[in-house]
């Protein structure tokens, strides 16, 4: 019978906290960068000539249709060889996670924008509004309402996906877990603790998402 001993982790708590902070840091920064990429790419894809939409489509499909783990390893090991620029593990992780998030957010933005009834554009035009203003004031607010559930979903995935940065030795929560395991010989306690920490961070996020959705749907 295995005897659980969580007290054995006590000396490692500072490392665990540090890992958690790194995880949150990568989530926040790559979600932010991914949103910017996604918004720009998503908008461009809805109303651009083919020579713009085709490469964007290519970018999106490459990142959606290959595993993030492969992308991460490829950007860290292969890309520097290809373009002759050395990238720190941190930079490679930031770039890959941002592009990965961006490809999914772009599709969410595009879907949201296209889900808004064409009649809304016409109503805006009929009162003399210009294109940009119709987009900002009429279409985008409605698109964002449609997008919120998928957006939250993707962001939750993004936080969990940051765990992959541990493969290039970036010190996130999972990486610290493996380091602690190697010295404490307590893998069950370590990974249980880490699982609980991921859950404790993400679960409240889903509750907030529910609230936002309720509020936004109030006047539908």
């Amino acid at each position: 019978m295995y005897v659980w001993d969580f007290a054995a982790l006590k000396p490692y708590w500072p490392l665990i906290w540090q890992g958690l902070l790194v995880t949150i840091f990568y989530t926040v920064t790559t979600v932010a960068a991914g949103l910017v990429i996604g918004l720009v790419v998503g908008i461009l894809r809805t109303n651009s000539p083919r020579w713009i939409t085709m490469p964007l489509r290519f970018y999106i499909e490459v990142f959606r249709c290959t595993p993030l783990l492969v992308q991460l390893v490829w950007v860290y090991y292969a890309l520097p060889v290809l373009i002759g620029v050395d990238m720190s593990p941190a930079m490679a992780c930031f770039v890959t996670l941002s592009l990965y998030a961006g490809s999914f957010y772009a599709e969410i933005f595009r879907g949201g924008i296209e889900a808004v009834d064409k009649g809304q554009w016409e109503a805006g035009r009929a009162i003399g509004m210009r294109r940009g203003k119709i987009f900002r004031r009429i279409v985008l607010p409605q698109a964002i309402q449609v997008m919120i559930p998928s957006f939250i979903n993707q962001t939750i995935m993004q936080l969990k996906n940051t765990s992959l940065v541990s493969v290039v030795a970036v010190g996130d929560l999972l990486y610290q877990g493996s380091v602690i395991t190697a010295t404490s010989y307590r893998p069950l306690e370590v990974y249980s603790t880490i699982a609980v920490l991921y859950f404790v961070v993400l679960f409240p996020l889903t509750l907030v998402a529910d609230q936002i959705e309720l509020k936004l749907g109030a006047h539908r």
């Binding site: 009649g119 809304q120 009929a126 009162i127 003399g128 210009r130 009429i138």
Partner: peptide, 23 residues
Amino acid sequence: DAQLAQLRQNVGMVFQHFNLFPH
């Protein structure tokens, strides 16, 4: 675009499906 916007300020339109701004 600017000319069109000018024209449409002076010409109101009511649609079959209302097209009110739901938000």
